[in-house]
Nucleic acid binder design. Structure first.
Length: 377
RNA sequence: GGGGAGAUACCAAAGUGGCCAACUGGGGCAGACUGUAACUCUGCUGGCGUACGCCUUCGUAGGUUCGAAUCCUGCUCUCCCCA
């Protein structure tokens, strides 16, 4: 996996680059739609490619391992073959699920995490080793280290102990990864995850430890989990001072369009978030003019385009009033339109960011854009 | 024509003397959602007031009672069964 740094902004840490993978190139900064269970919810792969211009999507180790299970994914020849997405895929390790799922029957030990399936209650064990094995079987281009993602409100003592465990797990992930091979004949890369909550010294320690393991890219995890945005930005700044310039940086699970632009300015290259799809399914639309709650009565008779900028065919084909009707009526097409629109918006936004970094006016452009896209319509 | 059942807030539907401005759904109106157990969750939904509260409501007109959506009488309407 090769990352080529193309441009560095003169007025911020923002940068443009290209990440080359076995399944194609990714222009950075990039947003990666989340496809937890092997599908970006309510969106066709054809729309992802042609209308949204997604260059890479996510899958999730925890969910895919539970269903359909490794036997089927392996028999299919990996996730790319299984779901028909021939562009790059990144899989999250399941570390976040360990944190986010209810803790009934969940137990964290040195070895790994035992947990109960949310589907049938069955007991399972994730270890750094088997999580790497699973991601080998899924065949993701980028596989994530198995980490513990503590809550944003964790105290220092807990954060420090948690980070130490994450670091030991990371070394085991690296060892397993480096002694195994891709099952399907193409290159995979392992990204470590920097943790440390909102504590500067822990973040620095985590970043230095990860960099020493010399990987193709690095992730920043454990942010946007309850801490104020300013603290998140401060942590990104701290970590990015240590992460190498010639490797991509991935901020996990973030975020709002504003978060993404601010993080790009701090030198982040890759993002993923459920927000455009989940919030979209719940009627929240991100547009070039501001944020819309399509369920609100004010759109009842508004027959104008979803987004006048017309970023995507759904913006041209459907009106706000019609989309409101669909969502209010629980029609499936509404979920699809909202998801496609929001993803198209996110991909458009990072595309614009790339453009302005190249042109040298990123910071100025960002200032105006943040104001527009955070407006409540 | 005869017999029976019923009329409750936007809809459906509980409540059958005080704990009822009235359970619960639905609908409506808002809000939340950040490495997806999420087409989910939360709040509000007679009027006025931030609130204690006050006012007007349970087909309609009267009555009984300290007190009625709840009991009695007349009227209006709806539904079901038999002819």
């Amino acid at each position: 996996m090769q990352y080529t740094l193309l441009t560095r902004d003169k007025h911020s840490e923002a940068r443009c680059g290209v990440l080359s993978t076995a399944h194609g190139e990714i222009r950075t900064p990039i947003f990666m739609p989340v496809g937890t269970a092997g599908t970006v919810k309510a969106v066709h792969t054809r729309e992802l490619k042609e209308d949204i211009n997604a260059e890479i999507i996510l899958g999730n180790t925890y969910h895919l391992y539970l269903r359909p299970g490794m036997q089927i994914l392996h028999a299919a020849g990996g996730l790319h073959r299984f779901n028909g997405w021939e562009r790059p895929i990144l899989t999250d390790s399941g570390g976040f699920q360990v944190f986010s799922l209810t803790d009934t029957g969940r137990k964290i030990t040195e070895e790994g995490v035992t947990f109960r399936s949310h589907i049938d209650g069955s007991k399972h064990l994730f270890t750094p080793e088997n999580v790497i094995d699973i991601q080998r079987q899924i065949g993701a281009d980028i596989v994530m280290a198995f980490d513990e993602c503590p809550p944003g409100t964790s105290d220092y003592v807990y954060a420090k102990r948690s980070l130490a465990l994450t670091q030991r797990w990371l070394e085991r992930c690296v060892a397993r990864f480096d002694t195994t091979e891709s099952l399907y004949g193409y290159e995979q890369a392992l990204f470590p995850i920097v943790q440390g909550c909102i504590y500067k010294d822990l973040r620095e320690c985590s970043a230095e430890h990860a960099v020493a393991l010399d990987r193709a890219g690095y992730a920043i995890g454990g942010l946007a989990v309850g801490e104020p945005a300013d603290e998140m930005y401060a942590m990104i700044e701290v970590v990015n001072r240590i992460l190498p310039q010639d490797k991509p940086r991935y901020l996990m699970g973030v975020g709002t369009p504003e978060n993404i632009l601010e993080a790009i300015a701090l030198g982040v290259d890759m993002f993923d978030c459920v927000m455009p799809t989940r919030n979209g399914r719940n009627g929240m639309l991100f547009t070039t003019e501001g944020v819309i709650n399509i369920k609100n009565q004010k759109w009842e008779k508004d027959f104008s385009a979803i987004d006048p900028a017309g970023l995507c065919y759904v913006d041209r084909d459907y009106s706000k009033a019609y989309l409101r009707h669909l969502i209010k009526s629980d029609e499936l097409l509404g979920l699809q339109i909202c998801s496609v629109h929001n993803l198209a918006f996110y991909l458009w936004l990072v595309g614009e960011a790339r453009q302005h970094i190249m042109e040298g006016d990123f910071v100025e452009w960002k200032r105006g854009m943040v104001k527009k896209i955070t407006t409540r319509l």
